[in-house]
Amino acid sequence: MKIDPGFIWTAFVQLLSALPTTLMITVVSVFFGFLIGTASALIRLYRVPFLHYLATAYVTFIRGTPMLMHLLLIYFGLPMVIDGTAAALGLSFRAASIPMIGFAFISFSITAGAYLSEVVRSGIGAIDRGQMEAAHSIGMTTPQALRRIILPQALAVSLPNLSNSLIGMLHGSTLAFTVSVVEINAKAQIVATTNWKFFEAYIAAALLFWGITFLIERAAGLLERRINLYNRGGVS
Rank of each mutant, 00 (worst) to 15 (best):
N231G: 12
I74P: 00
A87N: 10
A219Y: 11
M80I: 13
A192I: 05
A145N: 05
F105Q: 00
S117N: 08
R218W: 14
L215M: 09
V191P: 11
L45D: 05
L162E: 04
L45R: 15
L15G: 13
I167V: 10
V181I: 06
S92Q: 09
Y115N: 00
T141L: 01
G102T: 04
L159H: 09
A57I: 13
A112T: 04
L229F: 14
I212T: 04
M80K: 15
L16S: 10
W9D: 09
E118K: 03
S40W: 02
L68A: 14
Q131I: 09
V81K: 09
F32Q: 06
R63S: 05
L229E: 14
G77R: 06
V120S: 01
Y46L: 07
T65G: 03
Y202M: 09
L151H: 00
Q144G: 06
E217W: 10
L146S: 05
I150E: 08
L170S: 06
L78R: 02
F108P: 00
I62V: 15
S117F: 02
A104L: 02
N231S: 14
V181P: 08
Y75F: 11
L222R: 12
T141C: 00
S163H: 14
L91V: 03
S117C: 12
M24P: 07
P20F: 06
T56H: 03
A205C: 07
I106A: 02
T213F: 01
I167K: 04
S29I: 03
P143V: 06
G130R: 12
A205G: 10
M1D: 06
T142S: 09
I43G: 03
P49I: 05
S137N: 13
P99H: 04
V157Y: 11
A95R: 08
I43E: 00
L16I: 13
S107D: 00
T21V: 15
F7M: 07
P99A: 04
L54V: 15
R218F: 14
G172D: 01
T142D: 04
S158P: 06
T56G: 07
E118V: 03
L89D: 12
S122L: 05
F32K: 07
K187S: 08
E217Y: 13
V81A: 12
V13C: 05
A188N: 15
S173A: 12
F76R: 01
V59R: 02
A201V: 11
T213V: 04
K187P: 02
L116Y: 01
A201W: 10
S236H: 13
P49S: 11
N161T: 12
T56R: 08
A154C: 11
T178H: 10
M100Y: 13
A192P: 08
F199I: 07
R44S: 04
T111Y: 12
L89N: 08
A156F: 11
A104C: 06
I216D: 12
